[in-house]
C-alpha cells in the first residue's frame, strides 16, 4: 500500500511504500508499476514519460505540458490495490551461469567459512525476484540470497568487470550487462545478453517483477552460447 504520495520536482511523483525493504512491499510497488504502465499503453493516462520502480518506491515522471502532479495523485489515490495482479505480467527466466569465471569465491569462502561448492549450491537453489532494473541499461537488482551468504561490497571496487559477470552483495545478486567498474563479489558469468540494441521492440530481457533461476553451465557451453 502507498504510505505517502509526494511531488519530486514539478514533473515527478514519488509513491512511497514505507521504509522496509522486502519482497512483499516490492511486489506492491511492481503491481502498481504494471498498472501505471498498462494505463499509459492503453492511452488512459496522457503525458506520462516514465515509471521507475525501486525497492520501496515508484517514481512517475511526466510532461508538465500535458499533465500535472495533482491529476496524477488523483489517479493514484483511486487505484484499488486488491484488484492488481502480478502474475500475468511477470516472466520466469532461467539464466545460464558459468562459475569458472568467478573472481571472488576464494575470498568469500574464507570470510563466510562456507566452501565454494556450497556457495554455488545456495546460489543455484535461490529463486530470485527482480526488485528493480537500472543504473545502467538492463542491470537487474535481484534477491533474496540466504543470509549465510551476506557480504559487503569490495573495499576497493574493480575498475573493469567483464560483461555478463554475476555478483552478490548483502541479500542481492546482480548481473553486469556491460563491461563496467563495480564493487560486487563476482561468482560467475552468463553468456546471456541482458540488453540487446538489435532487438528494438524489446531490447531489455529482464523486467522488474520477473523471477530468475540460475543454471550452471561449463566453460564449453558458455563459449557456445556466447557465440550464438
Amino acid at each position: 500500500m502507498i504510505k505517502k504520495l509526494n511531488n519530486i520536482g514539478d514533473c515527478g511523483i514519488v509513491c512511497d511504500f514505507g521504509e522496509e525493504v522486502n519482497r512483499e512491499i516490492n511486489t506492491s510497488v511492481i503491481k502498481l508499476f504494471h498498472h501505471v504502465k498498462q494505463e499509459v499503453l492503453k492511452g488512459n493516462l496522457k503525458g506520462i514519460l516514465n515509471y521507475t520502480p525501486s525497492y520501496n518506491k515508484l517514481i512517475i515522471n511526466f510532461n508538465l505540458e500535458e499533465i500535472n502532479s495533482s491529476k496524477i495523485i488523483d489517479f493514484l489515490t483511486s487505484v484499488d490495490f486488491s484488484k492488481l495482479h502480478l502474475s500475468q505480467n511477470s516472466k520466469k527466466w532461467t539464466i545460464p551461469v558459468c562459475y569458472d569465471f568467478e573472481m571472488d569465491l576464494e575470498n568469500m569462502s574464507k570470510t563466510l567459512k562456507i566452501n565454494k561448492d556450497e556457495i554455488i549450491n545456495i546460489h543455484l537453489n535461490t529463486d530470485f525476484f527482480i526488485y528493480m532494473v537500472g543504473f545502467i541499461p538492463g542491470h537487474p537488482f535481484m534477491g533474496d540470497l540466504d543470509s549465510k551468504l551476506f557480504l559487503n561490497r569490495l573495499k576497493t571496487p574493480r575498475v573493469k568487470i567483464p560483461a555478463g559477470s554475476v555478483g552478490v552483495v548483502e541479500k542481492f545478486c546482480n548481473i553486469y550487462p556491460y563491461e563496467s567498474p563495480g564493487g560486487w563479489n563476482i561468482i560467475g558469468r552468463t553468456p546471456t545478453r541482458l540488453f540487446n540494441k538489435e532487438n528494438e521492440s524489446s531490447p531489455c530481457l529482464l523486467s522488474p517483477g520477473d523471477s530468475v533461476k540460475f543454471k550452471s553451465i561449463s566453460k564449453k557451453e558458455f563459449e557456445k552460447l556466447a557465440n550464438e
Binding site: C11, S54, G134
Partner: peptide, 10 residues
C-alpha cells in the same frame, strides 16, 4: 537512502 528512481534536476 535506499536507491530510488531519479527525476531531471534532482
Amino acid at each position: 537512502i535506499r536507491s530510488e528512481g531519479i527525476t531531471k534536476g534532482a
